[in-house]
């Protein structure tokens, strides 16, 4: 089963993504900030990370940089899902190492399609 880690401090967002992805056959785990995500990543691997930007303790950009530079799975696909949609925000996400930058609120079908494509669930 394809595994996705949802990293967001907003519980409604985590629940929404969980419901959406589980209905589509994904296995979903959650982390409330970048530090908790790193702890989870130290013990297991995921097929995709869905990462918010603004979170307490460790923001999404810092998390993604850690994943790319220090984790045991530096190539894991990352979609950053954020409220910030300016071109500079997109540049920051991609330069931190995200594969895709998506602006909230997400449209369910569009997000599912990207998750299926990037997690390898379609292959």
């Amino acid at each position: 089963m394809t595994r996705v880690l949802v990293v967001d401090d907003a519980q409604t967002v985590r629940l929404y993504h969980r419901e959406l992805l589980e209905q589509d056959g994904f296995q979903v785990e959650e982390a409330v900030n970048g530090l908790e995500a790193l702890e989870r990543l130290a013990g297991t691997t995921y097929d995709l990370l869905l990462v918010d930007v603004n979170m307490p303790r460790m923001d999404g950009y810092t998390l993604v940089r850690h994943v790319r530079e220090n984790s045991s799975d530096p190539g894991v696909p990352v979609i950053m899902v954020t409220t910030e949609g300016a071109a500079t925000d997109r540049e920051q996400a991609l330069s931190a190492g995200a594969n895709l930058h998506v602006v909230k609120p997400v449209q369910p079908e569009a997000l599912l399609l990207q998750v299926r494509l990037m997690s390898g669930a379609l292959s």
């Binding site: 409604t12 967002v13 629940l15 929404y16 909230k104 609120p105 997400v106 449209q107 369910p108």
Partner: peptide
């Protein structure tokens, strides 16, 4: 037109 808002409000 925002399904997330409907979901979040129902949750709250």
């Amino acid at each position: 037109d925002e399904p997330f808002v409907d979901f979040a409000v129902r949750t709250a």
